Amino acid sequence: MTGSETIPDRVTATDAAIELIRKLKSIHGPVMFHQSGGCCDGSAPMCFPDGEFKTGDQDVLLGKIEGSPFYIGRAQFEYWQHTQLIIDVVDGRGGMFSLEGPEGKRFLTRSRIFSDDEWKALKKAEEQNPLISET
């Protein structure tokens, strides 16, 4: 990264995750993701047909992976705001409501802490276009 002009993505995906997302989109059409910190399926990223999971004021749109919107619960965002989420995929059963379950795979969130330069670039960009609205 050169200087603070490059704004890092808050969410990215590994090649394996992108491959699975493409497969799910070919089966189900457009998809969306939601990362919560709640009960049931824990804090696994969940994949749904686009629009099936209703987002609200307590959700933050982090970005898109493979063209699919990725939301996170506001409380989780507050906790993880200093990290880049890296969506990966591993063998095993995912969340029972998540689309990848029948594929024998599950999405998994990995993370890394933003560098000081990345953090400054993010904060500057988000001053102009906040992720969380102050309503």
Results as ranks from 00 to 15, higher is better:
86 I>E: 06
88 D>S: 07
82 H>E: 10
22 R>F: 00
125 A>G: 13
30 P>F: 01
12 T>Y: 06
7 I>L: 07
95 G>W: 01
53 F>S: 05
65 I>K: 07
44 A>M: 14
90 V>D: 03
99 L>I: 08
131 L>F: 06
113 I>T: 14
17 A>I: 09
24 L>T: 02
101 G>Q: 12
107 F>R: 10
111 S>R: 14
62 L>I: 08
63 G>V: 03
68 S>G: 06
106 R>Y: 06
56 G>T: 09
33 F>W: 13
90 V>K: 07
135 T>K: 15
42 G>R: 09
127 E>P: 10
94 G>P: 00
22 R>G: 00
109 T>M: 14
52 E>R: 08
77 F>W: 08
51 G>V: 14
17 A>D: 07
97 F>S: 05
70 F>I: 01
103 E>N: 03
75 A>T: 03
15 D>E: 15
37 G>R: 02
51 G>F: 14
119 W>Y: 13
103 E>D: 02
130 P>C: 11
39 C>E: 15
50 D>N: 15
120 K>R: 15
83 T>K: 09
124 K>W: 01
20 L>N: 00
129 N>S: 14
28 H>D: 07
20 L>W: 02
18 I>C: 10
115 S>R: 10
114 F>A: 10
73 G>P: 01
119 W>A: 12
17 A>F: 13
41 D>T: 11
68 S>H: 05
83 T>V: 05
60 V>W: 02
13 A>T: 11
111 S>E: 11
35 Q>F: 07
125 A>W: 03
10 R>L: 02
23 K>C: 04
86 I>C: 09
132 I>N: 08
84 Q>G: 01
109 T>N: 08
71 Y>C: 04
100 E>G: 02
72 I>W: 00
36 S>H: 05
6 T>K: 13
32 M>V: 04
69 P>S: 01
45 P>I: 00
16 A>K: 13
127 E>L: 15
105 K>Q: 09
117 D>V: 01
122 L>R: 10
25 K>A: 03
131 L>C: 11
120 K>H: 15
114 F>C: 10
103 E>C: 04
55 T>Y: 03
83 T>D: 06
80 W>G: 05
70 F>H: 09
117 D>A: 07
80 W>F: 12
48 F>I: 14
73 G>I: 04
4 S>T: 15
64 K>Q: 12
16 A>E: 11
46 M>D: 07
125 A>P: 06
43 S>Q: 10
49 P>W: 06
130 P>L: 13
39 C>D: 15
85 L>N: 09
95 G>P: 00
23 K>Y: 07
97 F>P: 00
99 L>R: 07
19 E>D: 04
